[in-house]
Design a protein around this nucleic acid. Structure first.
Length: 562
RNA sequence: GCACUCAUAGCUCAAUUGGAUAGAGCGUUCGGCUACGGACCGAAAGGUUGGGAGUUCGAGUCUCUUUGGGUGCACCA
């Protein structure tokens, strides 16, 4: 229900621009002030009256009754208070009728959003940095889908470049097929690290690597076979991780996919006179040197990262005709995307404005920045496994007779890790530590899951929700706080999408859990008489539903018991 | 050097985008199990929002400046 509209309709004051008043309506910071308010300060200029006088006049003109129980003018604010019982019925009805669809919208109908995320590098470990990226992309993917957009999840595989030459050399020197079959990417990483160590002593290895990469480009049979083999090994492992994280993609078109799609881009740039030679290489320069030039072709004719992204942009526009194309990539690459987007704009692509770099912070270790070459990485799988083991230990201690312990431990452990990386604004850097990941108390995934299980348990033990409902059982501050949160959820989802910030959803889940747990301790539910009990059960059921919807968007499971 | 970005409680972070007395969690101290699930709840302590100036009815939020951290600046991705 649109309560803002309701308020507007009740105001009978003349000479008021109702639309601008509508836009001013907001929730007071302090709930004791009321449920919605109009700060009148902005109206003061046009109306040439003091904010206090305007607030007084508006408040006086409002007819109370029904949903609007009270109106107060305080220091330039008009504060509206709802009738708690009516409001409760309205909100709970909305949540429960919609069920799993609560929060859904059709604002994205007919619009396609491409999301480039995860973009794993072949033969490199999937570490905590990738998790932040992947979890963000996956959540944004689901949030946009919920808002009615057609979403295309793209895993822009890092499956091209000289590192494959290096890997082939390393494999031929030290590779052990059995070991690779057994340990997968870890075995590849080991020989990759070894290559870089040996290369320092023996620089000719680098030439050898370049030779092998050229062989891949020339479709040499042996080189191509090994290349495909490394790719298969990596994808198998990565798919296993995606499955645990509830991540899916609609396209795996990566760097190698664009090999034959770059020349047309270079041709067009040349035709438009944008591509110029500089020190033997070809670049696009920017007016007034606002940015360093964008390098698109090396002096030896080879293409670069930016060239591939240009080709990918054109391909995506042509294939999907996107409304927006998001790149979930760490802020390290700010300049790169600014350059690529600007070049597109200079080429006359009006859709360049729809390209958005959703930048996020970087994950480092306490021992410094992560580096595959130096072997300073924490494999995500180890993190997940450790978290699951901890969850299992906690279950063994608190709930030893629980059925399906292993599966629930998986849901709780993985949920804790996912929740942890999605809790802060995406731009924040994070230093990974096991202590943080293994904390299951406070603002964490397990806390929210626990609250969900608690709701579930209450409903299970209630013996069902009867017909008789007395909403006065919800007429208290604790319930009110819950209702306000539930009511706000659809709006929060839109905010989350607009800002590309899954943390809005994560924080909602925590806020709602905190509000419910407070209520739970202050009031009895199942031991109350029927009318009150049923009203509180409806509230419980709504909270359970909202938590489930929110965690679902984050890719986190909701075990009924834990 | 230039560009981007961050700075809020001891620590990790919020703050409805310019609104009312800046809020949570962790940690610390104290309290609550005869459990509708203690992975919980309550209370206390903890702040010159890095510093300075400005814009206005009002600034953690906008502008300028300054300090400190992170990142990036040509043939890697």
């Amino acid at each position: 229900m649109d309560y803002k509209r309701l308020i507007i309709d009740r105001i009978t004051l003349d000479g008021l621009d109702k639309q601008s008043v509508y836009d001013l309506i907001t929730q007071p910071k302090d709930a004791s002030m009321g449920d919605l308010c109009i700060p009148c300060f902005k109206l003061a200029k046009e109306m040439k009256k003091s904010p206090m006088a305007i607030a007084d006049a508006i408040a006086d003109s409002v007819s109370k009754g029904g949903m609007i129980k009270d109106v107060q003018s305080v220091a330039g604010f008009v504060n509206f208070t709802f009738d708690n019982a009516l409001y409760a019925r309205e909100v709970l009805d909305g949540v429960l009728k919609a069920g799993a669809n609560y929060g859904k919208s059709d604002e994205g109908k007919g619009k396609t959003v491409c999301i480039d995320y995860s973009s794993v590098n072949i033969a490199k470990p999937f570490h905590m940095g990738h998790l932040l990226n992947t979890a963000l992309g996956g959540a944004i993917y689901r949030i946009y889908k919920t808002l009615g957009y057609d979403v295309v999840g793209i895993n822009h595989l890092g499956d091209w470049g000289t590192q494959f030459g290096k890997l082939i050399v390393a494999y031929k020197l030290w590779g052990d097929r059995n070991d690779i079959e057994k340990r997968g990417v870890r075995a590849l990483v080991d020989i990759y690290v070894k290559f870089h160590k040996e290369e320092e002593k023996n620089p000719s290895l680098g030439d050898e690597a370049r030779k092998w990469f050229k062989a891949i480009e020339d479709s040499n049979k042996e080189a191509l076979e090994l290349f495909e083999y490394f790719k298969a090994i990596t994808l198998k492992e990565v798919d296993r991780i995606y499955k645990r994280l509830n991540i899916t993609f609609d396209s795996y078109a990566g760097e190698s996919f664009y090999n034959d799609k770059m020349q047309p881009v270079l041709d067009e740039l040349t035709a438009k006179g944008l591509l110029v030679e500089s020190d033997g290489a070809r670049v696009v320069k920017f007016d007034g040197d606002t940015m360093p030039p964008c390098l698109l072709q090396r002096s030896d004719g080879a293409t670069l990262y930016a060239t591939r992204d240009m080709a990918a942009a054109f391909y995506r526009k042509k294939t999907y005709d996107f409304y927006k194309c998001l790149y979930v990539v760490a802020y390290q690459q700010n300049l790169h995307f600014q350059q690529v987007f600007k070049v597109l704009e200079m080429m006359g692509c009006e859709w360049a404005k729809d390209m958005i770099h959703v930048a996020h912070g970087m994950v480092s270790l306490e021992s410094g920045a992560m580096s595959t070459r130096e072997g300073n990485v924490v494999f995500l799988e180890d993190v997940l496994n450790t978290a699951v083991a901890k969850a299992k230990a906690v279950i063994d201690e608190k709930n030893p007779d629980l059925e399906g312990k292993q599966e629930i431990a998986e849901q709780v452990g993985v949920g804790a890790v996912l929740f942890g990386v999605l809790y802060n604004s995406r731009i924040k850097d994070m230093t990974f530590s096991f202590d943080k990941v293994l904390n299951f108390e406070g603002e964490t995934g397990p806390y929210v899951q626990y609250t969900f299980a608690r709701c579930n348990s209450l409903l299970e033990k209630s013996g069902g929700i009867g017909e008789e409902i007395d909403f006065s059982g919800l007429d208290n501050d604790s319930c009110k706080a819950i209702l306000l949160l539930l009511d706000k959820y659809p709006e929060l989802l839109k905010e989350s999408a607009r800002k590309y910030e899954p943390s809005v959803v994560t924080r909602f889940a925590v806020d709602l859990s905190q509000a419910f747990n407070k209520f739970y301790f202050e009031y009895k539910i199942n031991s109350e008489k029927a009318g009150i009990k049923n009203a509180r059960l409806l509230l419980t059921k709504s909270v359970k539903q909202a938590l489930s919807n929110a965690l679902g968007l984050l890719g986190i499971a909701t075990p009924a018991k834990m």
